[in-house]
Simulated assay, not measured.
Amino acid sequence: MAEILFYHLETLPLESVMPLLLEKTLERGWRAVVEVGSRERAEAIDAHLWTWRDDSFLPHGLAGDDVDALQPILITTGDENPNGAAVRFFADGAVPQSAEGYQRLVYLFSGHDPEAVAAARDAWRALRGAGDTLTYWQQDGNGRWEKKAEA
């Protein structure tokens, strides 16, 4: 049984939220895969993770190298898991289909994008009956997370 977390971004953008969640993932000793919808977004996230904060280091790489299996965080556009990640992040057009093989899925979507909100609702309905624990979190006006639903 996996834990599936839906993060509805309202005040802080993906670039502010994802690195913090990835840090917490690594602190727990888990590896992560970050799936996005395009190579351009994968490259942008890769560049951002190298420079997002001066006092932080998030070891990661883009999928497709000989060292994919060694990466603590792997950024991809595909559905593979070559680094044996326990946690899979979805953002920018990538939508979870199944939690099989993972301890946790983290789905980040913008509340300012009607298509992303519709895709999140569809994913919630599709994943709800699989026996996993789903929680839906939304940012308040200060960027704090409020739990809005659980299934």
Rank of each mutant, 00 (worst) to 15 (best):
L134T: 09
A86D: 05
W52K: 06
R128Q: 12
V67H: 08
F109T: 14
A2D: 01
F90W: 04
A118E: 14
L49Q: 12
T133A: 15
T76F: 03
H112L: 09
D55G: 11
L58G: 03
R125V: 11
T25K: 02
F90C: 00
A119F: 12
M1L: 15
W145Q: 12
D79M: 00
D113G: 01
A47F: 05
G143D: 09
S98H: 02
A91G: 10
G143N: 07
G141H: 02
H48S: 10
L108M: 11
G37C: 05
R88P: 05
T135V: 15
F57A: 11
N142K: 15
A91C: 15
V87Q: 09
G84K: 07
L20T: 04
V117Q: 12
L22G: 00
G131L: 08
D46A: 01
R104C: 10
Q139D: 06
D122V: 10
H112G: 14
Q138L: 12
V17Y: 06
G84Y: 04
L22Q: 00
L26C: 07
A42H: 12
Q103F: 11
Y107R: 14
D79N: 08
Y7W: 04
N142Y: 13
L58S: 05
A47S: 11
P114Y: 05
H8M: 02
E115F: 03
A130M: 13
R121F: 06
A119P: 07
R31L: 03
I75F: 02
E23Q: 14
G84C: 02
A69V: 09
G64P: 12
G37P: 09
L21C: 05
G129I: 08
A44N: 10
T25G: 04
F89W: 12
D132M: 04
V33S: 01
W52L: 06
D140V: 13
T133S: 15
L58I: 15
D140E: 12
N81K: 01
L14S: 00
A69G: 08
A91Q: 06
S16V: 13
V87T: 14
E35A: 09
E146I: 14
P13T: 11
A91T: 14
Q71T: 01
L14I: 03
V17H: 03
I73H: 00
N83E: 01
D113W: 10
H48P: 02
V117K: 05
E100Y: 08
T51V: 13
G131V: 14
V17T: 08
G84F: 03
L21S: 07
T25D: 07
I4P: 03
F6T: 03
D68P: 03
W137P: 03
E27S: 13
L127A: 02
M18Y: 08
R31W: 06
H8Y: 11
N81I: 01
Q103H: 15
D54C: 06
I75N: 00
M18I: 11
S38N: 10
R39M: 07
V36L: 03
H48Y: 09
L26M: 11
E10G: 01
